[in-house]
Design a protein around this nucleic acid. Sequence first.
DNA 1: AATTGTGAACCTCTTCACAGCT
DNA 2: AGCTGTGAAGAGGTTCACAATT
Lengths: 205, 205
Amino acid sequence: MKKISDSTISRLSKYYRTLSRLVEKGVETVSSQGMADLNNITSAQVRKDLSFFGSFGKRGLGYNTKILRDEIGRILGLNKKWSIALVGVGNIGRALLDYEEFRKQGFLFRALFDKDPHKIGSEINGLVIHSDENICEIIDKEGIEIAIIAVPAKFAQQVVDALVECGVRAFLNFAPVAVKVPEGVQVKYENMSIELEALSFFLTR
Amino acid sequence: MKKISDSTISRLSKYYRTLSRLVEKGVETVSSQGMADLNNITSAQVRKDLSFFGSFGKRGLGYNTKILRDEIGRILGLNKKWSIALVGVGNIGRALLDYEEFRKQGFLFRALFDKDPHKIGSEINGLVIHSDENICEIIDKEGIEIAIIAVPAKFAQQVVDALVECGVRAFLNFAPVAVKVPEGVQVKYENMSIELEALSFFLTR
DNA sequence: AATTGTGAACCTCTTCACAGCT
DNA sequence: AGCTGTGAAGAGGTTCACAATT
């Protein structure tokens, strides 16, 4: 299978949102140039990104918004529900639990973990917070496919190791530290400070 | 001034964190290879990134962790405090207000804005939530340099327009929509769904 | 002996430009 | 006539490899 670049995938996500909004507005077709304008990129970029996956447009006419949105949804795997575990129910963790966008896209929290004995056993949004005992059992039972790591940096690696051991192959890591994983396991990082620091850099120059 | 790529800047942020941890641990020197291992990249990449800004190492010895951390801090503009405005005090907004990391890096919230009449006038963390009246006056008074946009997608453009008008030149946009800004204004995007969707794509293939 | 700093080579991603379709 | 799909060209970012330095 052809290697698709990370930037192409992240643009597909943006196209998906753009198209969703167009469909909501009742717009039925859009050109690559129209999509480009709405995403501050070039029309060639839009066409090239899509070309990796097929031909979705009509020459002379453009793309049908609803069809293209659904195609991209299918490409991204948004046509199914994903079972998510959240490890670390602190400030960030709780904000994520309340983040509507995730649920709308089919990312559903099904298991919570935390180290803090005060939190263990309590419930949030109908989910019990578990300790780190019997992790694999819970991961299995809930069919967890993706884990969101929202623990302090120094615990991130051990948490990921434990979950890899249970068979989890995809991680979204909010801890500001790189973690090692075996081949075939994917880790994405989310670090809000990095973008702020890029702005700080820009303003400093 | 030489153009520095976004990827170099975001790696500098990561180096900064890595070095901070090393300094805390009492490690005094580190090689480019050591830094590379901690960030899952190559040593040539580390050296090349740093070379855009100067020569900070000693051949045969490596880098002094404390000195390099401070140099990178200076490059990124982290040696000063930045005044931040938060627009949109919803779930995400509130989580950001409580995010320790920002404050530690010198990013300080100094003004809050929201549209909701129920929120206007109330206080969070000692900051009053303002309406959209007299925005520029407040921006000026508080010396706001960066605005964090945490409003629904459909309001993002008008909010940014208003703030650009007040002279704000740097934005961190959590709304999942691209906004247009004039030359000389920088917008960075933060969209947690995009990384989850990349994982979904990975698991789908 | 070890490790940096960097030009050159390499590779990947973006843009161009146009044939081909509607 | 208008717009897509795509090979080729161009731009940009990463890695190599080695001279220079401690």
